[in-house]
Design a protein around this nucleic acid. Structure first.
Lengths: 214, 214
DNA sequence: TTATTAATCAAACGATTGTTTAATTTTTGA
DNA sequence: TCAAAAATTAAACAATCGTTTGATTAATAA
């Protein structure tokens, strides 16, 4: 019987999913390897066997997430479409990604135990990559402000804006009691796109006016 | 000799500050009580003595932060000033608060170990309070969209936007190499205000147009 | 079929977790 | 000055931490 026929996924994948779920809800440091193993239905030793330790699970999650993000940027920016539509498309694709793999994305974005020395350079590399995508994107869609200080403000602002719904997590449901169906996420990506687009164009207009009157 | 004369602060306050610093850099779950005690220069038992446990430190931090935020909202909204200026003022005051008490704010905003049962209701209460302020604020400054679904998108978006700089933490310095002086934070609150204001007015305008043409 | 490799397991490793205890010192107020 | 209260301490608590070991089972290939 080939493994593809079994309903259950491979142990390695089950560990990864269990880890993601637990990291997302309790935070990386608060989760024990035994808890992960139990949820994944495997022996504790399997974690070290497949991921060479607890930290390996998180690394894998982050790497996979950034691969997906890179795919989105590459795809949209290769089309060379109108700035506004490109931005909207990127936001929509990112939201789709998060909707489809909420837990993985949440962990990859929020869980970064930078205190662990081994994670320091790993995180720096991965963060720079992500930010480079954003920079490329904003440049291509002509919403790029060529100023290091502004970029250090705008880029985190844009990321936070796009991911705000997922940063708040289960709160959203609990506080506003909205139904998180497909319509909702369409409305979400529409609204966030508008906020970001109007905000950025407004900011750039203001900066240009300032430059003229000076 | 009265205690006010001693240069060192009270042990309780030292514990609180050490806890905040460590929570901010390593995350709540990753910090041990012995590490906090050592940094604070007190015995481990003092933590349970003053805060009845590690969680008590975090609770105190969060409570103090929300008191400050409440103070800002109450002060600004009582003035009954122009919507745009009110928004700008609130953003500026919030940024000032974060600049002045960066570590406390970061911990209060990001560290919420909701998995701990004892924190569940505490967090719910505190979150609702914060969101109520924002709602009041947006209503008063006429940038409020009276739709539950939109609110569940806009409110987290606004909060994420305002706090984006601190959500990214030490990254900002490392990636963009900017100097985080007073000028920088002025530029930050100016830029975030503009993004938020232009984004919200743009969104509302779009919503009104949609309503007309329908 | 058999030798080899991969996968899985229970058990134990030492280290560290948050909290409590009981004794001791310091401060306070009468 | 002296008893009561508050503050602080070292030590020990049981529980859990992530990882490793060595044996056992399953899969693979010759």
């Amino acid at each position: 019987m080939p493994k593809e026929d079994t309903l259950e996924k491979e142990p390695k994948e089950r560990i990864l999913e269990a880890g993601a779920l637990l990291f997302a809800t309790k935070g990386y440091a608060a989760v024990g390897v035994r808890e992960i193993a139990e949820l994944a239905g495997v022996n504790v030793a399997m974690i070290s066997y497949y991921f060479s330790g607890k930290a390996g699970i998180l690394k894998e999650i982050i790497l996979r997430y950034f691969d997906e993000v890179k795919g989105i940027y590459d795809k949209v920016l290769a089309q060379n479409i109108e700035p506004e539509i490109a931005l909207k498309t990127i936001v929509k694709e990112l939201v789709n990604l998060m909707k489809k793999k909420t837990i993985f994305c949440k962990v990859a974005i929020t869980e970064m135990p930078f205190n662990l020395p081994e994670f320091m350079e790993f995180k720096a590399e991965v963060a720079r990559r992500h930010i480079d995508y954003i920079k490329q994107g904003l440049q291509l869609i002509k919403l790029f402000v060529d100023d290091n200080r502004y970029n250090s403000i705008i880029t985190p602002a844009a990321i936070s804006l796009i991911f705000s719904h997922f940063l708040f997590g289960p709160f959203i449901q609990k506080v506003w009691n909205v139904e998180l169906d497909e319509n909702y996420y369409n409305l979400y990506s529409e609204t966030i796109s508008t906020l970001l687009l109007e905000g950025l164009t407004g900011l750039i207009k203001k900066l240009n006016n300032k430059g003229e009157t000076k």
